[in-house]
Write a protein that binds this DNA or RNA. Structure first.
Length: 592
RNA sequence: GCGCGGAUGGUCUAGUGGUAGGACCUGAGCCUUCCAAGCUCAUGGCCCGGGUUCAAAUCCCGGUCCGCGCACCA
C-alpha cells in the first residue's frame, strides 16, 4: 500500500474531490430537489464529457484495436434469461436478523455452516426458517437463538413487468454480459462461425444494493464496459508475445493468504511462465489493460492486479483477477478478468433449447465407426404402445454406450425399472463408417469487465493536485489530454471588443478542427486560467494586442501543469493543438 | 438492513426557542498588456413531514439523504 501520503491527507483529497465534482459539474447526487435518492448519481457537463472520453478510449482499445464487435443490447430482459444465468436464484440473498444484537446475516450461510445442508440457497424460504428452528441455530455474532426469526428475501435485481398486466416479469440487467450471451447464436454468424471472436458492450447495469456507499464508487445504476471473448479452449491461444514485457504488480491469492504476503512486481511473460497467472488468456487481457489504464490516467503506483481468493470466486470462474486502484488508502475494484469457461453458453443452451455452439471443422475429415439403430416401428409400436419412443431412445443410448449388448439374439433394455427383451433384428442395429467434417463445440469465455464509474472516480482522484503559482494556492486536475472534458480554453487578454472578436474567431476555428473548446471572457485572465485548471483543461490560448496588431502576431498557449507559455502563430494553432491532442507532439517540443 | 455521527445560498461554513451572518463562487459595472488582485452593486439558503410552543432553522418523533463501522458486494 502506498505510504507517500498520510491517511488523513488522502481522505481530505477525497472530500475535496467530491466537493469539486459538485461545484464544477463532474458528478452529483440525482433528484436533489426531491431529497435525493440513494445510490444514483448524475454526471454533469464535465463528468459526462470525461466519461464519454474514457468510454471512447476503451472502445478504441478493446473493440477496434482488438478487432472485436460492439453491440448495444436492451437493459430490460425477460425473466427466463435470468433463470438461465442464475441471477434469479444467485442474486437472491436470504437475510435473517438477530433479535438480540440486531446484526443481519446470510441465512443460507448460517444453515450451511452449521448443518449438513450444502446448498441452502436453493431452498425455499419457509424451509430455511424451519431448518433454523429445527437445528436451533444461533447468531454467529452474539450466540442468541435465531429460531422463529423471519428470513427475508432480498434480490439485488430491479424487477419490472413487460407489457400490460403483470404476467410477464422482466428485470433490469444486473450486468451487461447476458445481453451478449443470449444473442450468441446470431453473433457467431456475424463472426462467420470462426473462433476466436470477441463482442463488447458499453452500457448501464442495475443492482439494488443494500447499502450504496462512497459516492460514485458503489451505486445502484452504473456503467459497465465488457468484453466477452469466445475461444476454443483446445485450440486457441492468445498473442502473449505482444504483452509479455508489460510490467505488472500482482497480488496473487497465495500472497494474500500468507503471513506478510506481498505484491509481486513482474512481467506478464514471467507470470505466465512461472504459473502465477494460470490462464494465458486472462494474462493476455491483463497485459492489454495495464498500459491502457496508464494511458487514461490511473497512477501506476496505485494500481495492481489482485487474484480472487477461492472463496470469493463465482462457482463457474476457473480463475479471476481484479484490476484495483488505491483511493483514500483503500483498494477498490475497477475491473474483473474472469475465465468463465462454457458456463454461460451452456446454461442458455439448456434453458432456451437453442444451439449455443460453433461448428468446428477438422483439418481432415475423420472417419469414425459408429453404432446406429434403425428400429422397426411396425414391431415396436404395437408391442410398446405409448412407450415406443422411450424404447427407441433407450436403444440409441445403448448402441452408443455398449455395442456388445447387440451381439446376441435379443437386446435387454430397462424401461422404468422393468426389463424388456427386443429381438436384435427388430432394432436395425448396424455398425457403419461415417465421415465427420468437424464437431460442435461450446466456446469458453474470457470476460474482462470494467466498471466505468469507478474508473472515472479513480482518474479524477489520481489527477487531483494542489500547488502554488505566483504565491497563490492552485487546485488543478492533471487529466490526460485524451480524456480531459475540455481540451483548450480560449480567452481575450482583456475585455476589449477587438480582442474578444479575435478570440471568438479562434475558438470557432478550433472547434471546427474537432477540438473541445471553451471560451471565457469573464473576470480577469488569472481567474480564467484557474477555472480551466480546476476542471483539468490541458491548454489555454490567450489573444493579446500583439495578436491583432501585427501580421503573424501569434497567441500564447499556456500549459496547465507547468503554467508555461509559448507563442504560436494563429494559422498553425489548430494543426499544432490537434497533433498534441492525438499524442503526436508534446508541448515541450514547441519553440518559444 | 443495524449502529454512531451529520444535513444552513452553487460550494464551504457561523449561529441563538423570537423568521439568518460570513467567505468563496456566480452575474453586472469600473480598473487591468498574462496567472483566483482591488472597488461598487446584485442574485441566492435553514432536507422533508408531523408534534410541543404565542413563536421551531433551533427542542421531540418519523422519514429522506450523506459519511463511517458491521453485514452485503452473484
Amino acid at each position: 500500500m502506498s505510504e507517500r501520503e498520510p491517511a488523513a491527507e488522502r481522505e481530505r483529497t477525497s472530500e475535496k474531490l467530491v466537493e469539486l465534482a459538485k461545484r464544477r459539474g463532474y458528478f452529483f447526487q440525482s433528484s436533489g430537489a426531491y431529497g435525493g435518492v440513494g445510490g444514483f448519481y448524475t454526471f454533469g457537463p464535465q463528468g459526462a464529457a470525461l466519461k464519454g472520453n474514457v468510454e471512447d478510449a476503451w472502445r478504441d482499445r478493446f473493440a477496434v484495436a482488438e478487432g472485436n464487435m460492439e453491440i448495444d443490447a436492451p437493459t430490460i430482459m425477460p425473466e427466463p434469461v435470468f433463470e438461465a444465468s442464475g441471477h434469479l436464484d444467485g442474486f437472491d440473498d436470504m437475510l435473517v436478523e438477530c433479535p438480540e444484537c440486531g446484526e443481519s446475516h446470510r441465512a443460507d450461510h448460517v444453515v450451511e455452516d452449521e448443518t449438513e445442508y450444502e446448498d441452502a440457497e436453493s431452498l425455499p424460504i419457509p424451509e430455511v426458517e424451519d431448518v433454523i428452528a429445527e437445528y436451533e441455530l444461533v447468531c454467529p455474532s452474539c450466540g442468541a437463538g435465531l429460531a422463529g426469526q423471519a428470513v427475508d428475501a432480498f434480490n439485488l435485481m430491479f424487477a419490472t413487468t413487460i407489457g400490460p398486466g403483470d404476467s410477464d416479469p422482466g428485470y433490469l440487467r444486473p450486468e451487461t454480459a447476458q445481453g451478449i450471451f443470449v444473442e450468441f447464436p446470431r453473433l457467431k454468424e456475424y463472426a462467420r462461425n470462426q473462433l476466436p471472436f470477441g463482442v463488447t458492450q458499453i452500457g448501464r447495469a442495475y443492482r439494488n444494493e443494500i447499502s450504496p456507499r462512497r459516492s460514485i464508487i458503489r451505486t445502484r445504476e452504473f456503467t459497465q464496459a465488457e468484453l466477452e471473448y469466445f475461444i476454443d479452449p483446445e485450440a486457441d491461444e492468445p498473442d502473449l508475445e505482444s504483452v509479455a514485457d508489460v510490467e505488472v504488480t500482482l497480488y496473487p491469492a497465495s500472497e494474500q493468504n500468507a503471513d506478510g504476503g506481498e505484491e509481486i512486481r513482474t512481467t506478464i511473460g514471467e507470470a505466465v511462465d512461472d504459473g502465477t497467472i494460470a490462464s494465458p488468456w486472462v494474462a493476455y487481457f491483463l497485459g492489454v489493460a495495464k498500459p491502457w489504464y496508464d494511458a487514461v490516467g490511473v497512477d501506476m503506483d496505485r494500481f495492481r492486479f489482485r487474484q480472487h481468493l477461492s472463496g470469493e470466486r463465482a462457482h463457474y470462474a476457473a480463475d479471476c483477477w481484479d484490476a484495483e486502484s488505491e483511493i483514500d488508502g483503500n483498494w477498490i475494484e475497477m475491473a474483473g478478468f474472469a475465465y468463465r469457461s462454457d458456463y454461460d453458453l451452456s446454461k442458455h443452451a439448456e434453458h432456451s433449447g437453442d444451439r449455443f455452439t460453433v461448428f468446428k471443422q477438422y483439418d481432415e475429415p475423420k472417419t469414425v465407426e459408429r453404432a446406429t439403430v434403425d428400429p422397426d416401428m411396425s414391431y415396436l409400436g404395437p408391442e410398446f404402445g405409448g412407450d415406443a419412443q422411450a424404447v427407441v431412445s433407450e436403444l440409441e443410448a445403448l448402441a452408443a454406450r455398449d455395442r456388445s449388448a447387440f451381439e446376441g439374439d435379443a437386446v435387454e433394455i430397462d424401461l422404468e425399472g422393468e426389463t424388456h427383451e427386443i429381438p436384435v433384428e427388430k432394432t436395425g442395429f448396424a455398425v457403419e463408417e461415417q465421415t465427420e467434417a468437424g464437431k460442435h463445440i461450446t466456446p469458453h469465455v474470457i470476460e474482462p469487465s470494467f466498471g466505468v464509474d469507478r474508473l472515472v472516480y479513480t482518474v479524477l482522484h489520481h489527477a487531483y493536485r494542489e500547488d502554488e503559482v505566483a504565491g497563490e494556492e492552485r487546485t488543478f486536475l492533471e487529466l490526460d489530454p485524451e480524456v480531459a472534458p475540455t481540451f483548450v480554453g480560449v480567452f481575450p487578454l482583456q475585455n476589449d471588443d477587438e480582442l474578444e472578436d479575435a478570440a471568438r474567431d479562434i475558438a470557432a476555428d478550433l472547434r471546427e478542427a474537432g477540438l473541445s473548446v471553451t471560451y471565457d471572457d469573464s473576470g480577469n485572465i488569472g481567474r480564467r486560467y484557474r477555472r480551466q485548471d480546476e476542471v483539468g483543461t490541458p491548454f489555454c490560448v490567450t489573444v493579446d494586442y500583439e495578436s491583432i496588431e501585427r501580421d503573424e502576431g501569434g497567441v500564447t498557449v499556456r500549459e496547465r501543469d507547468s503554467t508555461e507559455q509559448k507563442r504560436l502563430a494563429i494559422g498553425e494553432l489548430a494543426e499544432t493543438l490537434s497533433a498534441i491532442r492525438a499524442g503526436d507532439l508534446a508541448f515541450e517540443e514547441l519553440g518559444e
